[in-house]
Each structure stands twice: as C-alpha cells, then as structure tokens.
Amino acid sequence: MPNREITYAEALREAIREEMKKDPKVFLLGEDIGIYGGSFGVTQGLIEEFGPERVIDTPISEIAIIGGATGAALVGMRPIAEIMFFDFMTIGSDQLVNQAAKIHFMFGGKAKVPMVVRAPAGSGTGAAGHHSGSLESWFAHVPGLKVVAPSTSYDAKGLLKSAIRDDNPVVFVEHKLLYKTKGQVPEEEYYIPIGKAEIKKEGKDATVIGYSIMIPRALEASKILAQEGIDIEVVDIRSLRPLDTDTIARSVKKTNRAMVVYEPPRFGGFGAEISAWVGEELFDYLDAPVVRLGGEEMPPPYNPNLERKIVPQIEDIVREIKKLVG
C-alpha cells in the first residue's frame, strides 16, 4: 500500500471531492467556501473543480444555511453545510435541532434528511469567546442527530464519507488545532462506519476515553507515562452519537480503571455521559471511580495562558492518570 501523509484538512477535502464526483446530489453551501476556500481552507479548489452551482457561497445566514440544507435534503439532495465556527451553530440550531433531527420521526418515517453540518470547534487559537466553543455535547443530546468528532486525517476522511452517505443529519466536529496535523491516508477509497470507536493505543493499567484533539494529547501523555512504567490504553470514540459502548466495555474490563477526557466544561459535558455509562454498566470491573477530566466552567478566555489552562492538556492527563493508577 503506498503510504502518504496528508493533513486533516486535505483528508476532509478528499472525502468531499470523492463523494461529489460519485454523486451529483452532493453539494456544498456555506459562508466563504468558494474562492476563499473556507475559513480554514477545507474547501479550497472545490469551486474551481465543481463550479458555483455545487459549491455555493451564501450570505451570513446560518438559519438559511442549515435550514436550506434541511429543505434540500428533504427533496432528495445530499447537502454538506459548512458553519464557519462551531459557535455559530447556535444561530442555525433551531433548524437542526427542531427540524432536521426530528423530521424523520415526526413524519412517521415518511421523510428523511440526509445532510452533514461541518464546523470547526475548539479553543487554542486566541479567538476568544465567540470563536472557540466546543458545543458538541449539546448536539449529542439530541435524538435524531448523529455526532462525529474524528482525531486523525484517516478517520476524518473515512467518517466524512460515511456521514455524506448517511440518511440522517450528521454533525461533523472538526477541531481547529487538528486541521494542519498530518496522518497516513491510503490512496484507495475506504469508509469508516459511524458509531465505531477505535483503540488508538493498547495498554493495561488504565483506559483513557476521549475524542478529537484529546486523542493526540492522550497519546503524548501515554509516552510520558510509559517512562514511569504506566501503560495506558487510549480509546478514541470517534462518534459521540451513536456511542460504541462495546469497545469502551472491552477496554475497561481489561484495565479496570477509566478516565474520560474532553474539552468542553466538565459539568454536563459529553464525558459525563460516558462516565455515567461506565459507572452503571461496568461497576463490578472498576478498581476506582471513573475520573472525569474536562474543561473549566467558563467561556473561552482571550488571554493565551488562561486559554490553555482551562482545557485539558497533556500534563493534566499525565497528572490525573498517575492519581488514578497510583
């Protein structure tokens, strides 16, 4: 197999391009996705390749972007909507939460909404309170939506292709700090099923469960911990909803200790759901309470030192694992 490394942003672009070539129903809409190429460059070159009829620049109108995608999906298209920053999802979320998510159910299965809403999430770029949000937990709470948050180029491509093919609305969470990270992606086509976790590193002493940017951080932490003789297993859930509890269970039954790590505020964040599930279902296998490492209870601050401090970093994972295992 020819090995090649591409960035997370390039992997997403390849997924979009392949699906657009294959299916004329797939089209893009969003702000500055045409000649500008998207605020993080994901759609660069696509308007040149597919034209303005399939790569549609819109005004600043998130309600009409998400609602428009919903309507187009309802009549047989497969739209991919880009929301410039995840924080702006809140503006269009009536259409997503009250319409797209519920239509299949409310209409008694008579209609479907095959669409993807992609958005860059997360802090770490100094963009402060309105451009640094990690709101994936909000959407994972909504039955009818699927929520995916890949951590590598390989997963980003395979999962986005599956999301585009999915007959349900899928929220696709892209962490800003991952866009430029590189990873191996094969030339040949592949899909990764939504709802399947992956063990990114095997280990025996404790399981770290996370997604998105927290996976590379957990893997870095594992190297530091290995020097001290602590061998952690890293479970990348990849999809928040549906959640692959089988993989989590297999891992925790082996290590008997679990830590959940996530960027949003700890209180009510998605890690709380995982933690609760592990506590309920795997109680007999646990040697210690599940550790929940989440963000601080505050909006993202502008000051770079504070911005870093309020989100779990490698050293925080190392410290908490030592406490859990020690």
């Binding site: 963009a127 402060a128 309170g129 309105h130 601050p301 502008y302 000051n303 504070l306």
Partner: peptide, 9 residues
C-alpha cells in the same frame, strides 16, 4: 475586559 475578551469583545 481584563484580557478575557480581546479585540472582538
């Protein structure tokens, strides 16, 4: 804004 908001806030 005590450095919490930055330019945009």
């Amino acid at each position: 804004c005590h450095g919490l908001g930055g330019s945009m806030h």
